[in-house]
């Protein structure tokens, strides 16, 4: 019984060290578990795949560095998918501290496909007033964003001559870490302007998105880093990209981390019930 008492009193820092080492190990020595794509990611992939070449995919970058490992791989994979199919990409964001991440994607990814800023990709930037931004874009994007993130007037960007309002966009994907995020796009862009919307969300909020999937309000869902990994695999399977896949590379660690947490819960419960029985 002393053993169970000792288990109950184990120092939190030992748990931290075990946890840390078990997460690091598969990053250095991958276990090779592989990643398969679920139905929600496939639905989103098929929807983006069906956008005709030359049309525009809107991506709303509604996250910041705190959720970068989960959501940035989705943003990169979606952009690669679009560019490989000659679909143009329009980016905007509702999170001010996420602006730099969208800027990073716009700077790094289009050159991989020989795409040119202004012709194939435009980053509108961030604006205050969430619902006012979305509703304004429904009427006229240039009214909301007279200039892009870098200060170029929208009239000077060729791509923006074909995209005047949200109705000119066949599909949008909101990559959201919370509020503001995909629910705002549903509330204001879909209910009023009928925008077809897919979502990439942090795993924390993934379970909350299922009612919107069931009604068809959301076309596909990428949930957390696993969702990003699923999309990366789909993009690479169709030979749209050969780039490094950070989410796929993390999946072995993710698996092991989940097993560790489950073991901790089980061992904690065993120790608790063993000592409680004795106390009773």
């Amino acid at each position: 019984m002393k053993f169970f008492d000792a288990l109950q009193r184990i120092d939190r820092r030992i748990i931290y060290i075990v946890m840390g080492l078990l997460v690091i190990f598969p990053l250095v020595k991958p276990l090779g578990l592989g990643v398969s794509s679920g139905p929600r990611a496939r639905t989103l992939f098929d929807a983006v795949d069906s956008i005709p070449a030359g049309r525009t995919l809107l991506i709303s970058v509604d996250f910041d560095p705190s959720s970068m490992p989960e959501l940035y791989p989705m943003l990169a994979a979606l952009m690669r998918h679009a560019f490989a199919r000659d679909v143009k990409v329009l980016l905007c964001g509702l999170w001010v501290t996420g602006a730099g991440l969208a800027d990073k994607a716009v700077t790094e990814i289009p050159p991989e496909y020989g795409k040119k800023y202004g012709d194939d990709v435009v980053y509108l930037g961030w604006k205050a007033g969430i619902d006012a931004v979305i509703l304004g874009m429904g009427e006229n994007i240039k009214n909301v964003f007279p200039t892009d993130y870098y200060g170029h007037p929208l009239d000077s960007l060729r791509m923006m001559n074909e995209v005047v309002r949200l109705r000119d966009i066949p599909m949008a994907v909101a990559i959201s870490a919370g509020t503001p995020g995909y629910t705002d796009w549903l509330n204001f862009a879909q209910s009023r302007y009928g925008l077809r919307l897919g979502a990439g969300v942090t795993a924390v909020s993934a379970a909350d998105a299922y009612p919107y999937l069931q009604t068809g309000q959301l076309t596909g869902l990428l949930a957390g880093m696993k969702g990003g990994a699923e999309y990366e695999v789909l993009v690479q399977k169709k030979d749209y990209s050969r780039a490094y896949m950070p989410a796929v590379a993390a999946m072995d660690s993710q698996s092991l981390a989940h097993v560790v947490i489950m073991l901790l819960v089980i061992v904690g419960n065993i120790a608790y019930f063993a000592t409680r029985k004795r106390g009773a």
């Binding site: 840390g20 997460v23 705190s66 560790v260 947490i261 819960v265 061992v267 904690g268």
Partner: peptide, 22 residues
């Protein structure tokens, strides 16, 4: 900004592990 913000949230994983156990 990126390392500070990302690390701030990354340490939550350790607290979650500890909470799961206790």
């Amino acid at each position: 900004l990126v390392p500070l913000n990302a690390s701030m949230f990354a340490i939550l994983a350790f607290y979650m592990a500890s909470a799961a156990y206790r």
